[in-house]
Nucleic acid binder design. Structure first.
Lengths: 245, 245
DNA sequence: CGTTCCCTTGAGTAGTTTCAATACTTGTGG
DNA sequence: CCACAAGTATTGAAACTACTCAAGGGAACG
């Protein structure tokens, strides 16, 4: 069983507790695979409104636009259902944008409806996935309340490091992203100029070197310590691990 | 049908789309009612770990504590399920604390399990409720990224005004809360001293007067404009309203 | 009627913003 | 293969926002 499309869904989290049967069922939810280039608005574009989408490859940003400025309120990595909540909410309060090129798996809402009615085990996993998003949101709130700009950027990469590791993508010394410094600024709620200075400070401190979105470090622990990062909110195999019930 | 305990659950949002049967079933989920005083840690205290809780009366804060400092990452008003996600996550990444005295309705997880298996309509409403929390989290992230301290405080009260109105509690001229300025500071990610100056600025600008947590204003629209508040993220009866499906 | 918590104010410091100018990178067409 | 354009990154200076430390004032509760 390889599950080429959904292999990373909840990997490192609840996935290990799902039955083979459920995993196969989840793989079969994907009706089609779509590819998109950089900076594509995934909601208005070719993406159907009656589907929800699993991110298979690449990064997706959740943004809120206000005429003047863009705010990034979340990042998604492969294995994340990026708009599962649209199935329940019908509309989104924000925009989904690709960062770099992406591959998405489309799941028709009628199939999700069937899951809700007939497969409570899978429904619960879906619910769990959206709750993970909420837990990440809470940490972002706290990071914005607690940290200065350099630490916010470090926290961002620390979280990505952890999330990528959980889905089995090891990040030895370089974490590659397509993010510009303006993207980092919009994620951290600071100006682009200040994001640049924050990046420079991380370099000076020896915490990590960010070049065109790629972070290079040889001491992830030091980076995480600097960012006051504690990954338990990601509900991976650790302190807050989901117990067998 | 009055539903004395759960009358405010999803009121102004999905509630109107639920059947009488479902509403009765939801009311019957509540096994017992608990009362707690001010500043009680609801997770460690008398509150059972095998229950989730509906807030019936009062305010509850979601906080993350870090030895040195406390960060508030969310507020709950009556009608909110404050720890519904514990049913799915089993553990929480944060703490729930009463702000002022509260009444909670306890729902045993076994009843929720039955709902998940047998009542997809109610399960979906529960899911919807946790997604609303996530939408509010996203707006908080954006508010922290976008707004200065006085506007953050104004946004906070604007949101509370809207949420209380949705559950049928009109807020004509005074919005009463038990929040201290230190609470406001911890919600907005600023120091207590600065929260005080922000409150003073709102007063000087004629936006609103906050005295011991109670906000007095005679122009809610002006306050919301000042805070750049747009309530569509709350998924009430408006632009982003849930369509009949 | 005093203690305690909460609010207020002042002064100096640190973090962040804006505006503005300059360099580096990448991709494209000649 | 070079030249240019567009996007991205860097740096400086002045203004603003927010922080800390510190002290004093006010309101609620016993």
């Amino acid at each position: 069983m390889t599950y080429p499309l959904t292999r990373e869904f909840l990997a490192g989290r609840l996935r290990e507790h799902l039955s083979q049967n459920a995993l196969t069922h989840i793989e079969d939810l994907i009706e089609s695979v779509e590819e998109h280039g950089d900076n594509v608005q995934l909601v208005e574009s070719g993406v159907s409104l009656d589907d929800s989408h699993l991110l298979i490859e690449g990064f997706v940003l959740r943004t809120i636009e206000t005429g003047e400025r863009r705010f990034i309120v979340g990042i998604h990595v492969p294995g994340d259902f990026i708009d599962l909540h649209r199935f329940a909410l019908k509309r989104l309060d924000h925009t989904l944008v690709s960062a770099g090129s992406v591959r998405l798996g489309a799941v028709p809402h009628e199939r999700l409806q069937t899951v809700m009615n007939e497969r409570p085990d899978i429904a619960r996993a879906m619910w769990f996935a959206t709750l993970l998003d909420a837990a990440i949101h809470r940490r972002w709130i706290q990071a914005l309340e607690q940290l200065d700009a350099p630490r916010r950027i470090a926290h961002l990469y620390a979280e990505l490091h952890e999330r990528l590791t959980m889905i089995g993508r090891q990040v030895p010394r370089a974490l590659r992203t397509p993010f510009t410094q303006l993207d980092l600024a919009d994620m951290c709620g600071v100006s682009a100029v200040h994001a640049n200075r924050a990046v420079a400070k991380l370099r000076e401190l020896g915490i990590g070197e960010i070049r065109r979105g790629d972070l290079y470090t040889d001491d992830w622990d030091a980076l995480k310590r600097y960012a006051r990062f504690d990954g338990s909110y990601l509900y991976g195999h650790g302190a807050l691990k989901l117990q067998d019930d």
